[in-house]
Amino acid sequence: MSQTEVGATAAPATVRTPLLELKNLEVTYNQVVLAVRGVSMEVQEGTVCALLGANGAGKTTILRAISSVLTSQDGEVTDGTICLDGDPITDLAADKIVRRGICHVPEGRQVFRDLTVEENLRAAAFTLTDRRKVESRLEMVQEYFPKLTTLWKGKAGYLSGGEQQMLALGRGLMLDPRLLILDEPSLGLAPVMVDEITRIVTEVSRQERVTVLLVEQNAQIALDLSDYCYVLENGRIVLDGRSSEIAENQDIKEFYLGASEGSSTNYAAIKHYRRRKRWMS
């Protein structure tokens, strides 16, 4: 795959190969449910890229495809490719993907409930065989999340929602990933906690030079945090651009930012948005 791309996409005109690239990705569940319908995306190294979309848009499905954990859900990539540094990684097993430096922090704060905080972090460092590195990463995580230190030997299942989210993020950092994938880190957290998480994600992406792919339903958070943003609807990208520009986009303001202030899913507003979009195009 060495031929140069004809500049047909609207993505920023860089010659650099993106760190992560999805080309026309299609994912099917149970051989019939088409959840992702031809998605193309690029995540440039050193940036924070957001993927925005309502419930059921297919965000988690895209992330699962990237980290190769679709099989347990009876899903499979039925078309398209996923490339890391230009190398196709679509068919690699999940552990190989992790070894390539992609770390996926799943939605819903799925910590290992029966394990202690420390053991959760150690389990996340499974692919690291260098003991000294494991210890130094443990220390680093404790610096980012001092709260976790006080809960070190406690069972993760008993942590509060915010603490579990910190632990989930901490686990994501254990492997010193090149690409950190965050699936709705703000979900179900109080505003103070959301601010805290937001601050840490920004800090991590700057200080550790980690590229971040952030999935959110909360447009405010997504646009604040990211450099570039894709909007997903019904398994298709309907809009993409620099986050600063998208934040100015009238539709987004009205239907995503507006909706995110009240109840998190304003179904009517979203339906209205879709109708208007159809009417406009």
């Binding site: 347990s72 999940a94 552990d95 799943p106 290992f112 394990l115 499974f126 686990r171």
Partner: peptide, 23 residues
């Protein structure tokens, strides 16, 4: 041990264990 903790993690949540690179 590394393998022992990984085994318990897998028992706790196989899906996430996979995401953490545990085979």
């Amino acid at each position: 041990t590394r393998w022992g903790i990984a085994m318990r993690a897998t028992a706790s949540n196989q899906d996430v264990a996979q995401m953490m690179g545990i085979n």
